[in-house]
């Protein structure tokens, strides 16, 4: 069992994680709820951000910093709120100094309504950050050409969205997501944004994605601690199902119970109402 767990580690830029769930730290009702959610979710990484000091805010400054240190979890700073490559690079540099990590979740937002990533800004910022020695995890769409450009820029991990940030809609473009998975089989892909339910997380893990990042789906649920556990379980379930190799979907029914040596065996075609050769309206044709 232990051997199996070791073999199935999530590897991001050479760092190994036993969990495949990444957890955001925003929008919790209180620091204690966040701390408890982290404890039960057991996430690989916690996403964090940077802001000007807000006086009296519980979710920033020394108290939040102390909470992060107490969790002893690896951190993934983001560049949320950046609207240009330059802003994102600057924010990444500040985050690296503050959080002491080369990892950065690169966000460059192009549209204030959908919060859709800016493909051009992403590639530009990724190239610069990679030059500066960052390990870049870009938050992107599922567009294959964009993803390829990001890989060309040196991104070894991608974070395609399921749906716009905070919507909880689940995968809006399953076909494109699955095609991305197929076309980049060696690249760790973490589905980020738009996941609303544990079933969404389970679904993308079944498709072979390497991990899931959730925030609002946990923090804005009625019981974030219970929901954090549900997401952790669903990610594990989906991953296990992927590794197990799902059955191939069939177009017709196939009995799961052996038909040979049935007790009280009878020919199905002789049962009243069950006709094989002469189907009629209102009769069941097996």
């Amino acid at each position: 069992m232990e051997r199996q767990a070791i073999q199935d580690e999530l590897i991001l830029y050479g760092r190994r994680f036993t969990s495949r769930l990444l957890l955001g730290t925003a929008r919790y009702d209180s620091p204690s709820v966040l701390a408890d959610a982290i404890a039960v979710a057991d996430p690989a990484l916690l996403t964090v951000s940077l802001r000007h000091q807000m006086s009296g805010a519980k979710e920033s400054g020394a108290s939040f910093w102390n909470l992060l240190r107490e969790t002893k979890r690896p951190l993934l700073p983001n560049t949320a709120g950046c609207l240009s490559a330059h802003e994102a690079v600057k924010t990444g540099c500040m985050a690296r100094e503050l959080f002491q990590t080369n990892l950065v979740k690169l966000e460059v937002i192009a549209d204030e309504v959908s919060l859709q990533p800016d493909p051009f800004g992403l590639v530009e910022a990724a190239m610069e950050l990679v030059k500066l020695g960052f390990h870049v995890l870009p938050y992107c769409t599922e567009d294959w050409v964009l993803c390829r450009r990001l890989m060309d820029a040196g991104c070894e991990v991608l974070m395609p969205w399921a749906a716009p940030i905070g919507t909880g809609q689940g995968p809006r473009n399953p076909r494109a997501l699955r095609e991305l998975r197929q076309r980049a089989p060696q690249v760790p892909l973490i589905v980020d944004a738009g996941i609303g339910l544990p079933s969404h997380a389970c679904q993308v893990m079944e498709w072979g994605f390497d991990g899931v990042l959730v925030n609002t789906a946990v923090s804005r649920s009625l019981d974030p601690i219970r929901m954090a556990r549900a997401f952790a379980n669903s990610v594990n379930a989906g991953r296990s199902a992927f590794l197990a190799g799902p059955m191939i979907e069939q177009q017709v029914a196939a009995p799961s119970t052996p038909q040979i040596s049935r007790p009280f065996a009878s020919d199905l075609s002789t049962l009243p109402g069950l006709r094989v050769s002469e189907p009629r309206m209102g009769t069941l044709v097996p």
Binding site: R27, T47, L50, R51, S60, L68, N215
Partner: peptide, 10 residues
Amino acid sequence: IDIVHPTVGG
């Protein structure tokens, strides 16, 4: 001059 601190993020 911008002075920034750690804060919550998704």
